[in-house]
Design a protein around this nucleic acid. Structure first.
Lengths: 193, 193
DNA sequence: CACTTGAAAGCACGATCGTGCTATTTTCGG
DNA sequence: CCGAAAATAGCACGATCGTGCTTTCAAGTG
């Protein structure tokens, strides 16, 4: 039926927003239900376990990341411009109220086993692959050196992003963004042809 | 009395180890009590609220960081060698079973208010200050350029560390450490006189 | 419009959470 | 070694957790 899928998506949107604040473990069915103006059991029926709900939330979060970060970056011309756009949208992504759900999930499930851990890892791998793939277009376009290790670039750019997130979100350093761009530019320069 | 303080410390050591896995919110008094072979109320009497317990755990964690990371680095000669040692010990710190409690706490309390948030932020600030201060010794020794912004260095080095932690702990990339050192060395070279 | 099917609510369950109060045991100073 | 004080255990409380079962209400189909 159609109505069910509709409210299911509405629930997931609320759930993603809530999970950004307290993580996927902190996401509770009771509080989610009241945030959706539903009964616990009414909401619960859409997902038949908490784990299934959490998996659906992670999936929805990944979709939003693709829509808000990856896709807009792919609209830019291949090369350093695209990589820079990716970083820019990624930094905006980190500014979501409550922060980044990927980072929260990573901290929560790093040492666990099970579907949630596996899903988190594969999501995270996709993110890093996107990064490396876009860096590779800069090599293809002749902007970065031929022998560039794009995974090395990926790890370093990701470091710039993580550090920016930490400095701005937790430490509230006002020049975190400026310093992140300084770091990014130096990084790119050192790989330029 | 003396016995009380002794078991209190023993409890905190267990608590720190447990909190690395499930965070400070995931740390529960019941499970901690049974891990210490104590009754819930017996343990609870040492800290008179869960928040006080969590604060004590954070404090104990900071002490351990100083002992295992900062102090050993300070034993090295001032300059790049000391900075490099700091990074090395810091990377070993991340290898603790369950991961880094600072990072977990940061993800948990970033958007909260209250003593736990404040304690977490000030702990984190001290970490970054240590980093910048040690980088400053490299400037003093004439190894890095006079006009070096040591907080910029701090943010970038911290990025290398965070990225390493993510790649090795969550993504299990085997060459994460090697890439981290590559990044660190390029970073330092770009600041050398 | 009836009928079937799905969506939502109501209610109850066992478990566990943090937190008090009251005993009981252990420690330690005189 | 004895009495005071501290450390620990026992027990109970209200609240909330995830999860089922049953019933009511709405939606879509013939």
């Amino acid at each position: 039926m159609r109505k069910g899928e509709l409210t299911r998506q509405a629930i997931l949107d609320v759930a993603v927003r809530m999970a950004r604040f307290n993580g996927l473990s902190g996401l509770t069915i009771g509080s989610l239900a009241s945030a959706c103006d539903m009964s616990k059991s009414g909401l619960y029926a859409h997902f038949r376990s908490k784990e299934a709900l959490q998996l659906a939330v992670m999936e929805r979060n990944s979709e939003q990341f693709s829509e808000e970060v990856v896709r807009p970056a792919l609209a830019k011309p291949r090369g350093v411009a695209r990589l820079q756009a990716l970083v820019e949208f990624w930094m905006q992504w980190y500014a979501h109220p409550g922060g980044c759900l990927f980072l929260a999930a990573g901290a929560e499930f790093d040492d666990m086993t099970g579907p949630l851990h596996d899903q988190m890892v594969s999501d995270q791998r996709r993110l890093l692959d996107s990064l490396a793939r876009i860096a590779a277009t800069a090599v293809d376009e002749g902007e970065l050196r031929e022998d560039t290790d794009v995974f090395q670039v990926g790890q370093e750019v990701f470091g710039v992003l993580l550090s920016y997130n930490w400095m701005s979100r937790i430490l509230s350093y006002p020049d975190a963004a400026e310093r992140a761009w300084t770091a990014f530019n130096r990084l790119i320069e050192s790989y330029r042809v």
